[in-house]
Amino acid sequence: MKSMSATMRRVWRRAIAVVCAVACVFAVSACGSSDEEGKIRIGIKFDQPGLGFKKSGTYVGFDVDVARYVAQELGYSEDQIIWKEAPSKQREAMLQNGDVDMILATYSITDSRKNAVSFAGPYFVAGQDLLVRRDDTSIKGPEDLNGKRLCSVTGSTSATTVKEKFANEVQLMEQPGYAECATALFSGIVDAVTTDDIILAGLASASRGKLKVVGKPFTQEYYGVGIKKGNKAFAKKINAAIAKMIKDGSWERAVKDNTRGTGYTPNAKYNPPKPTEGE
């Protein structure tokens, strides 16, 4: 047999290189998929002290504690949880695209959101309130917001509520996260921050006494576990886990542990709630 010509050898080398490159791409893709196989992907906030907060590679907060408990009841250990950041304005898309299996990120159950996703829960009922500087005595409730500069997060129900109820009375600044709102409050750019009281309690705790919660909530926000639309069987399992957490005292301990030192207590008229959503 005659030896292969130099031209043919070059052609074969190129063909083999292409095949190898394609094989590598598929191998990497397969590895990426297998990393999440057998695990549960949970969306949380990374920037909300007391609720969902990423700290030195670990995740802490009330939402995180509830998520861990639910995951355990669903049969997942701690090392089988993949935590993913779920910013307010991206939550529906993350569920619709299958990026996460569930979201616990101060996610209020609303009719408009239920057009896009389903919920389990609720696991907590918060109330919208105001956060101000410790020495500010001019704001004692929402009725004192006339002419004030207010900060909330883009895509949150808090921003919507302020626009609907106080649009002619306040200047509203919207930021991507509550940490940015707290910074604006510290620096005097805004006079108050508004969102759910338990979120504000976490920010007040992180401020080391420089900020305070007014303590006059003016809404009820039912926190749900966001899931893909129509998954009633999954909602039922999550609800059973939440009910068990409330019954065995873990829910109350989680609230106390994550709001310690703030003087915050949940509204006993609404808490703990009965988880029946989505079934």
Rank of each mutant, 00 (worst) to 15 (best):
Q128V: 07
K148R: 15
R91D: 03
S138C: 07
R91P: 05
G121C: 05
E143R: 04
L95H: 12
C151F: 14
R149C: 01
T106C: 14
D111Q: 06
D129R: 09
A105G: 13
L104I: 11
Q96L: 13
A116Q: 01
G98E: 07
V117H: 00
E143S: 12
G141C: 01
P87S: 14
R133K: 12
Q96D: 06
R149I: 02
T106K: 15
D101Y: 02
D101Q: 06
G141A: 13
P142Y: 10
L150W: 13
Q128L: 11
K148A: 12
E143T: 11
P142S: 09
A86L: 05
F124K: 00
G141W: 11
S138K: 13
G121N: 01
T106V: 05
I109T: 04
S88Y: 10
L145N: 12
D136K: 03
G127T: 02
F119S: 02
P122D: 04
L95Y: 08
C151G: 15
I109A: 03
P122Q: 09
G147H: 12
M94H: 06
A120F: 14
N146L: 13
S108I: 12
R133Q: 15
A86G: 10
S118D: 08
Y107L: 01
P142G: 09
A105L: 13
E92M: 00
G127A: 01
C151P: 12
A93L: 12
K148S: 15
P122A: 12
F119C: 04
Q90T: 00
M94W: 08
G121Q: 05
L145C: 15
K89G: 03
S112G: 10
L130A: 03
L150A: 11
I109H: 05
I109Q: 03
D144Y: 07
R113M: 09
T110P: 09
P142H: 07
T106A: 15
S88Q: 10
L130W: 04
A116C: 00
R134E: 13
L130P: 02
Y123N: 03
V100D: 00
V117W: 01
T110D: 13
R134Q: 14
S152H: 09
V132N: 07
R91K: 14
V100H: 00
I139K: 10
T106W: 10
A116D: 07
M102F: 09
Q96T: 13
I109F: 06
N97A: 05
D129G: 12
K140M: 06
K89A: 07
G147Q: 11
D135P: 04
L131S: 06
M102G: 05
M102L: 12
R133G: 11
T110L: 14
F119M: 06
Q90S: 10
V132E: 05
E143Y: 04
D101C: 09
V125F: 05
K148F: 13
D144I: 15
P142W: 11
Y107T: 01
S152A: 15
F119G: 08
D136A: 10
F119P: 03
P142A: 13
T137Q: 07
M94L: 14
V117I: 01
L150Y: 13
T106G: 13
D111A: 14
F124S: 00
V125Q: 04
D129V: 11
